[in-house]
Design a protein around this nucleic acid. Structure first.
Lengths: 226, 226
DNA sequence: TGAATAGTGTCTTTCAGACAATATGCC
DNA sequence: GGCATATTGTCTGAAAGACACTATTCA
């Protein structure tokens, strides 16, 4: 029977724990995910999700944020835990359990990698991915499903739009993620009646046609709806 | 730069990983959760969720099932991953990350513990819990929220009902979990139009009043709806 | 005034929710 | 026939979805 004095922390072999991050963005009219090119064994040279081992003194979310910063220069993004992948053979090095997170933001927040392990990062359309390391394809698919699902009842698209945006650009984001066209009148009606967004009173000018009203997310409702 | 030959699995300190299981059942007209009394430090003598360390060669779900069997004699239940709790200070022994699962089944599947560590198990109403070890109260609360939410759009209550059941008993389960009464006509209308359940053609007899039709879950739809 | 996009209203269908009377089987 | 529970339908309001024309700005 263990006591504080006799408890032996090294008694059992322990799996390793990583966090991997799905960083989604809209680019070239498509839903893209951020990938990094691996610089070492295993899967050297292959594309993978940014991520890495969780340190002893940091929370899972902190680890995900740290990896995103080190590997992709990304700061200050909203992260949501997605799922934990723990198949015993998903990593050839040793037993590795991965807690996956996802984030949505503008692709402009990505900078150059600061990590020795990563030389290159890039965005890839989720519908046209290269071969991915580990089980990362499965993680991406799972995340895309969840994203599409949450789009309908949360304000999760917040991170993909600038501070002020037109309803047309918002509708574009929804159509790109969902992969099908949406009726303009119904979309606007729904978005305006939720109370999630509010008019800024300003208009977008500079184009050779009628300027559109600019909206912003209502700060009181940045939390999720459900 | 690591290669297969130079990769050192012991290079980093590693957190420990456990699975903890929320086993929900209906007992005495209340939603209950299964707890075990801890037999050793830390939190010796306190109630906690059944669970334990994940072994190197088993999946997370297998680990959850094994713990449920060892500590509570439970076999063959449907498990769903809930969330992963990884606060660095959630366990006084060392850094422990817990992958929480939840299950719903009849309380009759619980037998005596086969584990040296656990002497006693018991069901407790989720609205009247004893003080729990670790952050297990938080895990229970999170699981109850999720359960209530999924009740509305999945067939998750499947495990809480016998193979054949009346609509009244099904409604009872829903009311107990949700914590409020439901209109009988609306409930029946909704359940029958989803196609999730089907009539068996049999009737429940033996009571001193009108016998009720028995239904079963439609096996083609055992998967979740969303 | 033409080009290009912004902005708007109605109808229909579906679903949720409120609400109460009749039917059945057993004793 | 009395008891205890099973079973059933209508109305209303809200939300989703189909559908097409007018308004505005700028070049």
């Amino acid at each position: 029977m263990d006591t504080k004095e006799t408890y032996d922390v090294t008694k059992f072999d322990r799996p390793s724990v990583t966090t991997d991050v799905l960083f989604f963005t809209i680019k070239d009219e498509q839903l893209n995910v951020l990938l990094v090119k691996r610089g070492s064994w295993p899967f050297e040279g292959m594309w993978a999700l940014p991520g890495g081992f969780v340190r002893m003194d940091e929370s899972l979310e902190s680890a995900a944020k740290r990896e995103l910063l080190e590997e992709c220069g990304v700061k200050h993004v909203y992260l949501e835990q997605l799922y934990t992948f723990g198949d015993p053979r998903r990593d050839p090095r040793t037993r590795v359990i991965s807690v996956a997170y996802f984030a949505l933001a503008s692709s402009s927040v990505v900078a150059n990698p600061k990590s020795d392990e990563i030389k290159e990062t890039g965005f890839f359309p989720v519908n046209d991915l290269p071969n991915l390391a580990f089980d990362h394809k499965k993680i991406v698919d799972y995340g895309v499903d969840r994203l599409r699902n949450k789009l309908g009842y949360t304000n999760i698209a917040f991170g993909l739009l600038p501070e002020m945006f037109t309803l047309t650009s918002m509708q574009n984001v929804y159509e790109i993620i969902l992969g099908h066209p949406i009726d303009k009148r119904n979309f606007r009606k729904k978005m305006l009646t939720t109370g999630l967004i509010e008019s800024t009173g300003k208009k977008l000018s500079g184009d050779a046609y009628r300027p559109a009203m600019l909206y912003r997310f209502n700060k009181r409702d940045v939390v999720f709806l459900n």
